[in-house]
Each structure stands twice: as structure tokens, then as C-alpha cells.
């Protein structure tokens, strides 16, 4: 394997624990706000690492840029989605855990 393949694989593997911890947080955290926190943070870092890793592995600038665009769109969408869910939950009177 060439150096770029090693680097790409290493980045993809580095992304997996972030996705796992995001999922673990979604399953184990006590309320909607903490779950959103775990999911929106962990998954986005994990996805970013995987997109960068795959982009390096592809060896093509066009493909790498498309993967980066996917990541940026996901960042925007997940930030908005998490905000909407949290705002709706707060307006419906769901109290944050521990308050």
C-alpha cells in the first residue's frame, strides 16, 4: 500500500470511534438535549474524518471536493436539525436533565 492509502485508511479508522461514541450517547444519555449533544458532535467529527480519509484514498481532487461538500452540507443540516429539535422540546416543556 502506498503512503496515501495508509493515511486514508488511518483517517477512516480514526473516524469510527467518534461515530460509535455518538451512537452510544444517543442510546445511553438521559434526555433529549444530552443525546443531541452527543450525536451532533460525535457523528460530525466522525463523518469529517471518514470523508477526508476517503477523499485522500480516491486520489482525485474532484471526488475529494465532493466528499468535503457532503461533509459541509451535513454540518449545516445537523446543526439546524439539532437546534430545531432542542427548541421544539424546550417549547413543549421538556426540562433539561438535572434542572
Amino acid at each position: 500500500m502506498t503512503l496515501t492509502e495508509w493515511l486514508g485508511t488511518a483517517l477512516v479508522i480514526a473516524g469510527v470511534p467518534f461515530l460509535l461514541s455518538g451512537t452510544l450517547g444517543l442510546l445511553r444519555f438521559p434526555d433529549v438535549y444530552t443525546r443531541l449533544h452527543a450525536l451532533a458532535k460525535g457523528d460530525n467529527v466522525g463523518l469529517g474524518l471518514i470523508c477526508v480519509g476517503l477523499g485522500i484514498q480516491s486520489g482525485s481532487v474532484t471526488v475529494a471536493l465532493k466528499l468535503l461538500l457532503i461533509w459541509v452540507l451535513m454540518l449545516i443540516a445537523s446543526a439546524t436539525g439539532a437546534g430545531l429539535i432542542a427548541r421544539t422540546a424546550l417549547a413543549r416543556g421538556l426540562k433539561p436533565w438535572g434542572l
Binding site: L73, I76, A77, A79, T80, G83, L84, R87, T88, A91
Partner: peptide
């Protein structure tokens, strides 16, 4: 529109419509 308005949604619409 959603019953509970959010400032993020109009910003998202403006940002993503060209995309």
C-alpha cells in the same frame, strides 16, 4: 410554517436554495 419558529431555518433555506 412550523408551530415553533427558529431563526436557523430561514438561514438554512437561504443558504441551501442555490445548492
Amino acid at each position: 410554517v412550523p408551530a415553533i419558529p427558529s431563526p436557523a431555518l430561514p438561514a438554512l433555506g437561504r443558504m441551501l436554495w442555490p445548492m
